[in-house]
Design a protein around this nucleic acid. Structure first.
Lengths: 338, 338
DNA sequence: GTAGTGATTGGAAGCGCTTCCAAAACTGTG
DNA sequence: CACAGTTTTGGAAGCGCTTCCAATCACTAC
């Protein structure tokens, strides 16, 4: 109350040196328990709270990590995926006593402006960066900086970066397999934004599975939906004339759009066209019929990204961490398999 | 490269004092332009980037503001509202050279843990806190702390806090007015979570408008939907037996659920039941029919919250800022008015 | 009783920057 | 050309904490 409440002041009131007060504050050993208690009491009584910035400067670690969403990714914040991911990351930060700083780049200017702040040890102890479009400049520069970085998603052009990803290829495979098992032959695909690795990998899984079953990859049955509802809607409209009997959609949101297009064409799901999508986010259960979809553990994914980052911070960047998380087919109604 | 790149080092290489180097770094006057250029050149050549934490400590301002989402609000992160709000806030932070720290509380423990870090000047220059449920403890404690704070939404129990809100009452009024003009008499309402002021205010606007038109407020035509799609669906199911001819839904997401329930009951919108909702977020245009809804400027709202906060930081907390933003009726298909 | 051990304590030097203040250098005036 | 007034400059004191290191202390073993 009276004086500015610094650690010095606490030390003075407890009749010890600042060093000892610091030890008590940080729960370090080598303090007589009697003294420790006395200092703790003073801290409690005065409502002392250490100055985080001073701690950061002196200890050379900020206990802050940054989540960087590059330009254009931010558009996708409409998709439930990113909010959910952010939640997972925030949760993990809380659990590990880290503060989360959010860098949502909305223009090239933003990237230029923030690069100096974040690419330097000081503000941030580490960075989780979402992969953006292939060839993204920001990610390359961040990886080259001396700040520990983990990429959320597979960075195509930086194979030895630390990254966490879901097994998109395997997920797509099991989606297509499911459709094949149900007897579908003309399986179309609505892809995500093909400038992202997630979209590419799912596409790869789709092609691979068809080929392994001696089915042709028919370009007229593939259309890009850019990961948005409206994109999925338009993609489906393009696909309909080619009479697919099943669709693999690279995201739930796009599947929602596809359903709309299908109904507007007077067809029904799953009777006329079966649909499997990817994500298993809220849209999957809101849709009628409910979507059979590839579940990806978005929340856990965010947690894992943070934990991997903390591991890198603590134990250094070598060897590169590559975490691949499993997906799982969730069967609901949109395939008519039950 | 060679030595640790501090301001001292820059000063040494440029042959000036650290004070002068600091002045150049911060674009302050009283430096001969010749010297200024020399220092700038050295900074550019060496790729010098100041240590943000050291700057914070010395200048007593961090250029970081916190966005606090209290417990339970975080659940609503599924609704497109919060991601969009976050985007607006992030944008404004970027534009004003502030870093955004995100505190998404997911448990009481989180709140306890972070309170000391954020309620103290140091880490954060200011806080934008989303109103949570009425009676929320955290918001009260934050308002009592010495950190400049702006509330997003009207904090019922803290009328003289700084806050930014949309005019929920007026918005609800114009929604109901629209339905009245179209000749509807049995106008039902799906409310949001009634422990929030947004839900209460919209409910108030609904009641007020009915009363002003000498219509009864019929409890059987009102049901709580908790701001979720599924909540809206269930609320609508409860309402259907009482034969409303129109529905005012307190959010787009709930309207989506309501539409589902209406269709499942074999009725159509707008023929059998007209629907007006609130938000004008992506679900409004995805829905079939597209939703007539009260547009609220979510993005601008986030921007305004930040700008108000910066104003408070700069000019002090008095007088209390109370910003109310306007809403607007957007007519689409779900009322059949065209 | 004394040397040796390990646990405790505090002095002091930072961490990398801002900013107050006094000194130095320059400007223009009579 | 001296003097008051204005810029420009740098020395030094912080900002509030951590941490190295040397000093002190309490014991044990001989």
């Amino acid at each position: 109350m009276t004086d500015k409440l610094t650690l010095d002041e606490i030390a003075r009131r407890a009749g010890v040196s600042r060093t000892t007060a610091s030890r008590v504050l940080n729960n370090r050993p080598n303090v007589r328990s009697e003294i420790r208690e006395r200092v703790q009491r003073v801290m409690a009584e005065t409502g002392y709270r250490p100055h985080p910035v001073a701690q950061s400067l002196a200890s050379q670690q900020s206990h802050v990590i940054g989540l960087v969403l590059p330009r254009r990714t931010e558009i996708l914040f409409n998709d439930p995926y990113f909010p959910r991911l952010t939640q997972g990351i925030a949760q993990a930060c809380n659990d590990h006593d880290y503060t989360l700083a959010l860098f949502m780049m909305q223009s090239e200017a933003d990237e230029q402006k923030f690069y100096p702040r974040i690419s330097r040890k000081g503000l941030l102890d580490g960075i989780v960066i979402q992969v953006g479009q292939i060839g993204d400049d920001l990610i390359a520069r961040l990886l080259a900086s001396d700040v520990p970085t983990v990429v959320a998603g597979r960075p195509l052009q930086h194979p030895n970066a630390n990254y966490v990803d879901v097994d998109n290829v395997a997920g797509a495979c099991s989606a297509v397999m499911h459709l094949l098992h149900l007897g579908h032959k003309r399986i179309g695909m609505i892809t995500g934004d093909m400038r992202t690795t997630a979209a590419l990998d799912r596409y790869t899984g789709y092609c691979k599975t068809l080929q392994e079953h001696d089915l042709p990859v028919d370009e007229t049955l593939i259309s890009e939906g850019y990961f948005t509802e409206i994109g999925g809607y338009e993609a489906m409209q393009r696909l309909l004339p080619h009479k697919p009997d099943a669709i693999f959609s690279s995201s739930d949101a796009m599947a929602l759009g596809a359903l709309r297009a299908i109904y507007e064409a007077g067809l029904t799901v799953p009777k006329d066209i079966a649909v499997v999508s990817f994500d298993d986010l809220p849209p999957a259960t809101i849709a009628r019929p409910q979507l059979t979809t590839i579940h990806q553990p978005v929340h856990a994914f965010g947690v894992k990204a943070v934990e991997t980052l903390l591991d890198v911070i603590k134990n250094g960047p070598t060897p590169p961490r590559r975490i691949i998380m499993e997906t799982e087919l969730v069967i609901r109604e949109s395939c008519g398999s039950r």
